[in-house]
């Protein structure tokens, strides 16, 4: 237990923390800050770093040109950081809840539910564009809840995964039918959005996502203590004094709430949760209280890096960040699937 220190305050506060974890946290935090600065700096328009620093720092006014350009870059950076962290946290939560190291928000039908609601609303029912994102959020949460209820009925260890997959596949089929019957234009449109892209992220989107992150911050902080016993299986968790029959659905709801607003704003990001959580476990081990924040920082870094690469390396084309994350994810998935025993 070398490296563990304790934070003590009176009789009621006594918290352990590991120095290694703190060091990794600080390192990732610095990396993320650097990446965010790069995110503001890099783009098809050349801009000296000094002008960005002048715009960022509160000394004197920034020039209008830089400010206008930041309108395009800042929301992308914010949505990438918050969205990456939220999707990654969701993935890790689901991995712990399901006891399956390959779990991902796609698993519970949450991503597909949001996608299907947005498309059904837009294409079939003609819902105005401004209402599509909230509708998608509701749809994602509803499908997540449905999958949970069905899984609770089934009472099998892998019930959640099986039902989630079944619902995801059915919804995927529904989406394809809608798109194909809507003609090729609709389908092309759907394809470009379904890869997860940050191009459309606006300051309003960034603010909305920040609102969600703020609301979910408290439950997220409380989550690790509920997650730790779940790692030992339901029976052992319950006899240790946890309440898995309560904490599982609540944590799943949290996972859904984390991923749905991101899907509504930027589309689904497959594999992000998977890679981030596995990287985090490699770094800090298996304490949820340490894995969760490291997972979130890793997810934020990953999505930010993918978006930066997508909008600078392939010009004049901007490749959706989700596509690049998926490519990294497939490689990661294969590595993880090989490493996971059984």
């Amino acid at each position: 237990m070398s490296g563990t220190r304790y934070l003590s305050a009176g009789a009621h506060v006594h918290l352990p923390f590991a120095l290694r974890f703190l060091a990794i946290l600080a390192l990732l935090g610095l990396l993320l800050a650097g990446a965010m600065l790069c995110g503001l700096w890099l783009g098809s328009t050349d801009l000296p770093l000094s002008r960005i620093l002048r715009w960022l720092l509160p000394f004197g006014p920034a020039d209008a040109d830089t400010a206008a350009l930041m309108q395009l870059r800042l929301p992308r950076v914010i949505v990438a950081v918050l969205g990456g962290a939220m999707v990654a946290a969701s993935g890790y939560l689901l991995q712990v809840i399901s006891g399956n190291a390959l779990a991902d928000p796609g698993l519970l039908g949450i991503s597909q539910g949001t996608v299907a609601t947005i498309l059904l609303g837009g294409v079939v029912f003609g819902v105005p564009a401004a209402w599509l994102a909230p509708a998608g959020l509701g749809g994602g949460l509803a499908v997540g809840a449905l999958v949970l209820l069905l899984a609770a009925r089934l009472q099998a260890v892998n019930g959640l995964i099986l039902i989630g997959l079944a619902v995801s596949i059915s919804l995927g089929a529904v989406v394809e039918i809608i798109m194909v019957s809507g003609g090729i234009d609709q389908f092309v449109r759907y394809m470009s959005w379904s890869h997860g892209t940050l191009t459309a992220a606006s300051m309003a989107d960034a603010a909305r996502l920040a609102g969600w992150a703020l609301v979910l911050a408290m439950p997220l902080a409380a989550a690790p203590r509920a997650m730790a016993p779940l790692l030992l299986g339901s029976a052992q968790a319950a006899s240790l004094g946890a309440a898995p029959h309560l904490s599982r659905p609540l944590l799943t709801l949290l996972a859904a709430a984390l991923v749905a607003p991101v899907v509504a704003i930027a589309g689904p990001f497959a594999f992000l949760g998977l890679i981030a959580a596995h990287t985090a476990r490699r770094l800090v081990g298996d304490r949820p209280g340490e894995v969760l924040p490291v997972t979130m920082l890793t997810g934020a870094l990953l999505l930010l890096a993918a978006d930066m690469a997508g909008r600078t390396l392939f010009l004049p084309m901007v490749v959706p960040a989700g596509l690049l994350v998926s490519v990294a994810g497939v490689i990661g998935f294969l590595a993880v699937a090989r490493a996971v025993p059984r």
């Binding site: 098809s44 328009t45 870059r73 470009s192 004049p316 901007v318």
Partner: peptide, 14 residues
């Protein structure tokens, strides 16, 4: 201005 479906907004601005 951009490749359809994969726009670089900065280029449009430029």
């Amino acid at each position: 201005a951009a490749i359809f479906g994969r726009p670089d907004l900065e280029h449009i601005r430029s």
